Computed example of a mutant assay.
Amino acid sequence: MSTPEVTRAAGAFTYREVGATRLGPLPDGYHHLHHRTRIGRGRTVFDAAGSALTTWRLHRATGVRVRADVARARPGGTVELSLGVGPVAVSGRCEVVWTVYGRDRTGFGYGTLAGHPERGEESFVVDLRDDGSVWFTVMAFSRADRWYTRAGGPFVRLLQRAYARRLGRTLRRLAAA
């Protein structure tokens, strides 16, 4: 298995615990999200899922607008994610903190930059297990950083969980195609 790449840009992130989604544990003082979805079986599914994940295709397939300065996730790459239309559009910039491109594990974690509605980090990982099953895991820690995310309270957490489930369903479809 390859060694994950990690970057730490001093002062660029809106939180201190940069890289915590790579190995855990997730830091105290944040809301935690951990969602796992079985994607399918076999090397072909794993390779397709890893490619869709690390080239931003997964995020785009869920209806999120993606502007990335890298075609494939790599440490230091930035991505702006936007959802909604006009005055109800919400967007946030993130920087890829770490990546792993291994034989049985592919994924990355990114952290929030100034102006993002939340503070924290989120990771997306595809694993090929010994039994041939392929799993997708979303793990995050975050807290509100704007008035509207603070006002949204528990509703924001519900949306985050729903989005993680949607990512899993979408990745299952993309990897099977």
Score class of each variant (00 low, 15 high):
112 T>A: 10
135 W>N: 00
119 R>N: 10
133 S>A: 15
129 R>V: 11
102 G>T: 10
123 S>K: 02
99 T>A: 09
111 G>P: 03
144 A>C: 08
137 T>A: 12
106 T>M: 04
121 E>P: 00
97 V>Y: 01
120 G>I: 06
102 G>S: 13
102 G>M: 05
115 G>Q: 06
131 D>E: 12
107 G>S: 13
127 D>T: 03
146 R>D: 14
105 R>P: 04
94 C>P: 00
134 V>W: 04
143 R>E: 11
103 R>V: 12
135 W>S: 02
128 L>C: 14
129 R>S: 14
101 Y>M: 13
126 V>D: 04
144 A>P: 07
103 R>E: 15
105 R>Y: 06
105 R>H: 12
100 V>W: 04
130 D>R: 10
110 Y>H: 13
134 V>K: 04
115 G>K: 05
114 A>F: 08
113 L>I: 05
133 S>L: 13
134 V>N: 12
133 S>R: 15
133 S>G: 15
145 D>M: 04
108 F>L: 13
122 E>A: 12
142 S>M: 10
124 F>I: 01
134 V>G: 09
138 V>T: 08
134 V>E: 14
141 F>M: 13
139 M>A: 12
116 H>E: 09
95 E>P: 03
146 R>V: 15
96 V>K: 03
96 V>N: 02
105 R>K: 14
113 L>D: 05
139 M>E: 07
138 V>G: 01
131 D>Q: 11
